[in-house]
């Protein structure tokens, strides 16, 4: 019980962070603790009124990350089934973003060490890739086909077995 009181006391303190483009954000300490990098900075007493600068995270993804951490920190322990479901719904809606934002979240969550968000963004990326042809994936992610015609032919030939079969029939699994 004592520990819980302490935690509650700590999380009342607000942590300031600054995006690469100079915007300031605030979140409870419990939320900031979900980021490995922020937690280390707080533990090292680097969190001051000027805010922790995050040199590679722009304002738009940082706003999302603050949002994510605040939500998850508030519901971190002793979840009821309904609350867990609500958090799941929040995640599902949260990650419904375009590929530009998804990329920024992937890189920022990785940089800041927000494990839950990293997993969420990686899973979303994998879901976008699944079942798509190379051409469809290029379109989804805005990637230019930089193979020479010879290289492309070779790849097609080498991987013909997989390009022809989408999935093995389920009875064989």
């Amino acid at each position: 019980m004592a520990a819980a009181t302490d935690d509650a006391g700590d999380s009342n303190e607000m942590i300031r962070v600054v995006s690469s483009d100079g915007e300031h954000f605030e979140m409870p300490e419990a939320a900031a603790n979900l980021s490995l990098v922020l937690r280390h900075m707080i533990e090292d007493d680097c969190a001051d009124a000027a805010g922790i600068p995050l040199a590679v995270v722009a304002a738009k993804p940082l706003a999302k990350i603050v949002d994510y951490c605040t939500k998850h920190a508030a519901k971190s322990s002793g979840l009821t089934i309904e609350e867990a479901e609500e958090l799941k719904r929040f995640d599902a809606e949260f990650i419904e973003v375009d590929t530009d934002m998804l990329y920024d979240l992937l890189v920022a969550a990785d940089f800041m060490g927000v494990e839950g968000l990293s997993k969420l963004a990686v899973q979303r990326t994998a879901d976008l890739i699944k079942g798509k042809t190379p051409e469809q994936n290029r379109e989804t992610f805005g990637i230019v086909n930089d193979f020479t015609p010879e290289e492309e032919e070779e790849i097609c030939k080498e991987n013909e077995w997989a390009f022809q079969i989408t999935k093995p029939p389920s009875r064989l699994c």
Binding site: Y103, L106, V107, D110, S118, V122, Q123, T125, A126, I129, K130, G131, K132, T133, P134, N137, R138, F141, I143, V144, N145, D146, F147, E152, I155, C156, N159, A162, F163, I165, T166, K167
Partner: peptide, 27 residues
């Protein structure tokens, strides 16, 4: 196209072998 390697590998771990092979045809 230049997604950092550790993130790319994390994505790859969530794909089956067929999707992974299809990725080799992207770029």
């Amino acid at each position: 196209a230049d997604l950092p390697t550790d993130i790319f590998d994390a994505v790859l771990r969530r794909l089956d072998i067929f999707d992974a092979v299809w990725l080799t045809g992207v770029c």
